[in-house]
Design a protein around this nucleic acid. Sequence first.
DNA 1: TAGATTGTTAATCGATTAACAATC
DNA 2: TAGATTGTTAATCGATTAACAATC
Lengths: 208, 208
Amino acid sequence: MKVFSKNQLQRYPIYLKFFKELYEDGVTEISSPKIAAELGYSEEQIRKDLQAISSEPGRPKKGRSVAKLIETIESFLGYRDSAYAVLVGCGHLGSALLNYPNFDDMGLTIVAGFDVSPNKVGRDIGGKHIYHMDEFATVFPTLGAKIVVLCVPADHAQDALNMAVEKGAVAIWNFAPCHLNAPTGIVVETVNLASSLAVLSHRLNSKR
Amino acid sequence: MKVFSKNQLQRYPIYLKFFKELYEDGVTEISSPKIAAELGYSEEQIRKDLQAISSEPGRPKKGRSVAKLIETIESFLGYRDSAYAVLVGCGHLGSALLNYPNFDDMGLTIVAGFDVSPNKVGRDIGGKHIYHMDEFATVFPTLGAKIVVLCVPADHAQDALNMAVEKGAVAIWNFAPCHLNAPTGIVVETVNLASSLAVLSHRLNSKR
DNA sequence: TAGATTGTTAATCGATTAACAATC
DNA sequence: TAGATTGTTAATCGATTAACAATC
């Protein structure tokens, strides 16, 4: 099977966003050089990326159909059918994600939240019911969710992951700024703001 | 000057977090093999990463001083002196970031927010005053901030960036899920949740 | 001393870029 | 047809890994 590097996978949503804009503007076909000029990638890389997921070849002198590209990328990324998730840790960031409307369009449906705070348990946030963490073991397995979005403080993240995995989670989307250990076969993807900020700071400081 | 790859830069906050935990547990020295066992990187890579920023060599048979490592990484990442920022777009995610307490420890001080919503303008969020976007041109240059944290919807992100750069911003921390074009010399670092989710989904779907 | 761990140098690996013939 | 753009194959580049002598 074809292998996709992390960098490559990360580019597809960016292509998709761009193609959707083109589509709205009535553009029907797009070529690699034009994409390259707009997104700042090399045209060879774009060609490889699009080839890797397309069933049809591009057409010399024309490029590819924008509508077809949108469909291809959405299918490839799994936007066409939903995966279910719960969110653990409904603090500021967790609540923001519960309210984020676009996940549904990206094939991720968050069905419920978990927290320990009495202010939150029993309430709805972003239309999702918030359960107490004590209920996790009994409730989570009934929700049909396989993905856990982790928004707890770093010092609770590993414990939360362990519990989630024990109760059947197969993928963890981790927003805590720490490394997590998980059993083989469990997918862990971390969004680390500290790492991102480190890149920004270093670039900024090495400018002169 | 030494060059740091993006991946490498992203690892330092993760090392730092781990070393701080060790420090709290009273561990005074740590060796590459032990770090490797815990964080899942190779020990060679860890040695290279730490060598790249340390003034002193590690000690055979012992490793490195945890306290010294913490100090070294914090200095390297610029955590010891603050850079000032404003946040544009105080929706759910923007508000969450305004309330995030850890940025100060990471050398980033957000001094104010900007939004267009009458519900938010004039209020405080996370202790920061929220100005109307119409005031950006006059207020931003007075705040001493060089960094703009962008949390506006994707279709306004490029406009917001342009305005920010025009008024003197030199770095953009972009949370909108789209590619942004910026003049040469302007640092743009994007946190793209869609890209992160794409990696997670693909790994999950290719497990079988 | 013996052995664990270091730093350095070389080998490998993978991703990106370049070159170019094929094609509409 | 001519020329832009494609897909493929080879070259380059950079990062990670492996090997190993140096050292406390």
